[in-house]
Design a protein around this nucleic acid. Structure first.
Length: 132
RNA sequence: CUACAAACCCGAGCUAUCGCUUUGCAUAUUGCAAUGAGGAAAGUCCGGACAGCAUAGAGCAAUUUACUGGUUAAUCGCCAGGUGCAGAUUUAUCUGCAACAGAAAGUGCCACAGAAAAUAACUACUCAAAACUUGUUUUGAGAAAAGGUGAAAACGUAGUGUAAGAGACUACGGCAAAUUGCAGUAAUGUAGUUUGUGGGUAAACCUUAAAUGCUGUAAUGCCACGUAUAGAUGCUUUUGAGGGCUGCUCGCUCAAAGCUGAAAAGCAAGUAUCAGGGUAGGCAGCAAGAUUUAGUUAGUAAUAACUAAGCUAGAUAAAUGAUAGUUUAGAAACAGAAUCCGGCUUAUGAGGUUUGUAGUUUU
């Protein structure tokens, strides 16, 4: 029984090599203020859904602000990833969320709302990918 | 009592649910337990530890520092003292500030105004000569005493002196340098003697004195995986390379002296640059040390010594969080470790302590 809301190390997209591939070959879409890069791989690892988050250093010079945004994004993914895990079985989804707005998010609720939209859209992209 | 300013202290707690890092244990991939940012973690401005490379030397340049002593692993830090300037009043003390060696080695610069900003003659002054309109003009020389300008004008006052004047000379005083005595570890102070009287600017060049290897934990070492030195260009084979450290010079150290050929050259070797290929995983470094708190002793102090007690962040796209409630005081300010320490600088809400200033009330 997998814990429903966990977000541990294997579920993160981490290495620089993976990220290079993701930005080079992956597709992307925008649900403001979130830009999502995603990539479906044929190899089947232990985790079917993997996610990373990032914030531009240009927009936020202070490390405290970047940490705050990244924590909110991770929290959003952690609590709303369930639909993706149910749907995606045949391939491995890696995606990376970039926060591109220049103003800080007001609170968690705003981020969560956007995150739900991201999850729905990713689910749709997956079904298209399988169909083609 | 209120307001403002400065310095210092402090840098929220509790409950529930869902999570994260690291560690330990186990019934082992899930449980349980423990653990988890700062006073500045920031700026990267100084100084070290640690590591790698280098490690005969000399000279010139370059860079840094600049009152004295102490302190420290070390410093451009800190403490104490001195000097100068400013402010305050209690008038001899306190507080603050100081790129605090040299302008008497040399070169440069000094806005505006002013005749002139440094080998001072514009006006006015004195003398001589010439001219004539006979008290003026012109020319030459002397002269920094008077004038106005300016941030600053060629030591001040009085006298002597002189054609008129001038530190040209004299007296008193100011300032500077050298030197002697005394006090002090010293900077320096003080009293005397001698010499001088030369405007400012060294955060202009510069001079003097002292000091100075480079690169930084993405250092560095080990293991694993993987491949390719195949190639191009230049140079050399009596020269090349290395390194003196940031640069140059002298000297120094190391390597090689090959083969074919009549020669040109070729092969080979060495070396530099370019181009290209592979890996970008793990472990160590990496958390207990110039350590923190308290006390005692030494010292004016910075600090040191001793005694006792205490001290589990350690990631690598990078943990320390989210939501709800609650308490203070308002959904707490500035802000997030990345090799580690000591300082400096800057940011910082509420509350507290101390000091100063202003006002109000009472006595």
């Amino acid at each position: 029984m997998i814990k429903q809301f966990s977000y541990s190390k294997p579920q993160k997209v981490k290495s620089r090599k993976e990220l290079d591939i993701l930005f080079k070959n992956g597709k992307s879409f925008l649900i403001f203020p979130l830009k999502v890069f995603y990539f479906f791989a044929d190899i089947s690892g232990a985790e079917k859904v993997r996610c990373g988050v990032g914030v531009s250093k240009k927009h936020y010079a202070k490390a405290v602000d970047r940490n705050r945004i990244k924590r909110l994004l991770r929290e959003g993914f952690r609590l709303n990833k369930a639909p993706l895990q149910e749907t995606i079985q045949q391939k491995q989804l890696s995606f990376f969320i970039l926060y591109i707005d220049k103003t800080m998010p007001e609170n968690y609720a705003a981020v969560e709302d956007k995150m739900k939209q991201v999850v729905i859209k990713l689910n749709k992209r997956y079904t298209d990918e399988i169909a083609s």
